[in-house]
Design a binder for these strands. Structure first.
Length: 254
DNA sequence: GACCAGGCATCGA
DNA sequence: TCGATGCATGGT
């Protein structure tokens, strides 16, 4: 049992940053970092089983000062409705490799399909049919096509080879901009995917992934003239990633 | 049955 | 440097 700082478990899981979960009973089954566990909200607490409490606290980023972050973002009048709507939306700490596979898979796709693709991948190639397969296990494009990855399959095998050769090694020590360039050099990885990985796996909270929803939301709030990412960094600086997450969930709800 | 999807790589202009 | 296009399929 984890005493509860502001946290909306369901909203956070369903916020498009993470795909390896499903509703199970009155809670959720989550698979990440090579582990699978059950989690549910009980009154003002979070109950987990199958993992240590410290693991859950870290994965769910319960140490992020969410009230402080929201307090600062709420000062922006135009962002306020999105932030007010979700008092407990957090940005998770995912595993870099899993996150990378997820967002390469997300390319021109949709959440139900991404979820299904990743589930098939883990079932087919992962340990115990649950965990994300390691890079070594992703070696045959035909398998990926059979699993429904479509044209995304083309990048995943060469990507796995690069990661096997250490493409992600030491990335956590690089400056964000440099890490971003390294990620963008990988097959199937452009700025959007790179920014997602930086935000959701490397805790670079200043990252601002721009997809069609964010582009629309930003155009609605600030006009479509300027580059959304530039606008975001000016207004929200090192908290741009959280701003993005509030905007994403908020704009999709309407 | 269009139209679009948490894009990327490639190719002309 | 920028806009258009193909890529495979499934959701809506």
């Amino acid at each position: 049992m984890i005493p509860n700082p502001p946290f909306q478990l369901g909203v956070t899981l369903a916020s498009g940053q993470f795909f390896r979960w499903r509703a199970e009973g009155d809670g959720f089954l989550v698979s990440t970092h090579g582990r699978t566990f059950a989690v549910r909200e009980r009154r003002d607490r979070l109950a987990v089983s199958g993992i240590r409490r410290s693991f859950a606290e870290r994965f769910f980023a319960l140490d992020h000062d969410l009230p402080g972050i929201r307090g600062r973002l709420l000062r922006d009048r135009r962002l306020r409705p999105a932030v007010e709507a979700y008092p407990g939306l957090r940005i998770l700490r995912q595993d870099p490799w899993e996150c990378l596979v997820s967002f390469v898979t997300s390319c021109a796709s949709n959440i139900p399909r991404i979820t299904r693709n990743l589930e098939s991948l883990c079932r087919e190639l992962g340990r115990k049919g649950l965990a994300m397969p390691p890079p070594e296990a992703i070696s045959d494009e035909r398998v990926l096509r059979r699993l429904g990855f479509g044209f995304r399959a083309r990048h995943l095998v060469p990507l796995a080879r690069e990661v096997e050769r250490g493409a992600l090694r030491g990335l956590e020590r690089l400056a964000t901009e440099e890490a971003r360039e390294r990620l963008c050099a990988l097959p199937g990885v452009g700025v959007k995917v790179a920014d997602c990985v930086l935000l959701f796996a490397y805790e670079r909270l200043e990252s601002f992934p721009v997809d069609v929803w964010i582009r629309r939301a930003m155009a609605g709030l600030f006009g479509g003239r300027r580059d959304p990412r530039t606008v975001a960094l000016e207004r929200w600086g090192e908290l741009s990633g959280y701003a993005q997450q509030f905007l994403y969930v908020w704009s999709r709800k309407r």
